[in-house]
Write a protein that binds this DNA or RNA. Structure first.
Lengths: 204, 204
DNA sequence: GTCTATATTAAGATAGAC
DNA sequence: GTCTATCTTAATATAGAC
């Protein structure tokens, strides 16, 4: 593996472990066993490092966010979609642990995050719209817009919330939480399926 | 006003404006027109400053969180409760903008936040329980527990979420979001009342 | 590409005079 | 209580040899 990629891997690990603000470039270099000068040759500081990791994050999620429009959409597909998203968010969790802080310092990241959030919300809205067409989802358009916002917020911050409560940030719990967010808006049978699915998934 | 209090006021302002990590003790001293040495005389660094502000925050919210148990609880009381909480959270928003970061660095704050979150959740649970007794709220105990978690998460992070989206963090929107979170769990008439109240409140 | 060594900067801490 | 002045430390940045 190229040094450049090893640096990204190692930074991601340390950032996730200790939080981006608590990791210095020197620490990354030491952890990898290379010199600070060498690190600087590849990345001029933490800003390009963070941006590089964000780019990876986006690339890995891109295929998910422009999904093939399923003809028939089951609640299970919903669950899988959420699961995959939550899993990627957890893998790059440092980005969302210090989101305000990071976007405040790095305007490029701020723009990137906003654009990405829009595509995420579009994908969610499309998902809900399909459920709505299939009569599995009640609620009017206004309510569904709010639901998309609420789901997005939960996806972004639920790991962080768990961490503050002293639990290990489990992507599993994030998905559970979002499924229960969805449930009250579903029709009777879909709701039962969703809740059962969520419970079973939570307890393995 | 005593210097000690002026320092707290000024720090709160700067922390909220720029985020706690981006404000140095020197900057606070300059803004106030006192010397860094003098600031250091009152607070030995940022840690005691943050803890001092958290203590204020708790004291200001304490009366709310041990509420007199209303005999008859209307949805309006719910709204008022949420409004007052959201307003205080916004006033001390720096604490929640960098929550992971801060609690990671300050174990005392971490313990304090966890205890406080427990009392907040108890107050919310009590509120929901009262609505339940009055038949305004359906959903079983399990679901209500999840709802308390979801409301807490939203109260904590919604301002932050708005900020990331590029809006001014409006406490008003937080309350709106929480009311719509509550709505699907309410009985027909209470739900209508809640939604109407939320909409009217949102658009002034 | 990678190293060693050094420069720059900024925050945090503290001593001693008033 | 408040100031001025200085010290320590740590992170980032960069030059120049290999």
């Amino acid at each position: 593996m190229k040094t450049r990629d090893r640096i990204l891997e190692c930074s991601l690990m340390l950032f996730n472990q200790k939080g981006e603000p608590n990791v210095s470039t020197l620490e990354i270099a030491n952890e990898m066993g290379i010199s600070p000068g060498n690190l600087y040759y590849h990345f001029h500081g933490k800003e390009p490092l963070v941006l590089g990791l964000f780019e990876r994050f986006q690339n890995e999620l891109a295929p998910l966010l422009s999904p093939p429009e399923d003809v028939q959409l089951e609640i299970e597909d919903c669950w899988l979609f959420l699961h995959l998203i939550a899993e990627r968010l957890a893998h790059y969790r440092f980005l969302f642990q210090d989101l305000s802080n990071l976007t405040g310092r790095l305007p490029k990241l701020e723009r990137g995050i906003r654009l990405w959030l829009n595509t995420l919300k579009q994908a969610l809205a499309q998902l809900l719209a399909q459920l709505h067409v299939q009569q599995q989802l009640r609620s009017d358009t206004q309510e569904l817009g709010q639901l998309v916002e609420q789901i997005t917020l939960t996806l972004l911050f639920s790991l962080d919330y768990q961490r503050v409560l002293g639990q290990h940030g489990e992507p599993r719990l994030v998905v559970y939480q979002v499924m229960l967010l969805l449930a009250p808006h579903l029709q009777e049978d879909a709701r039962c399926a969703a809740v059962l699915l969520a419970e079973r998934y939570l307890h393995d």
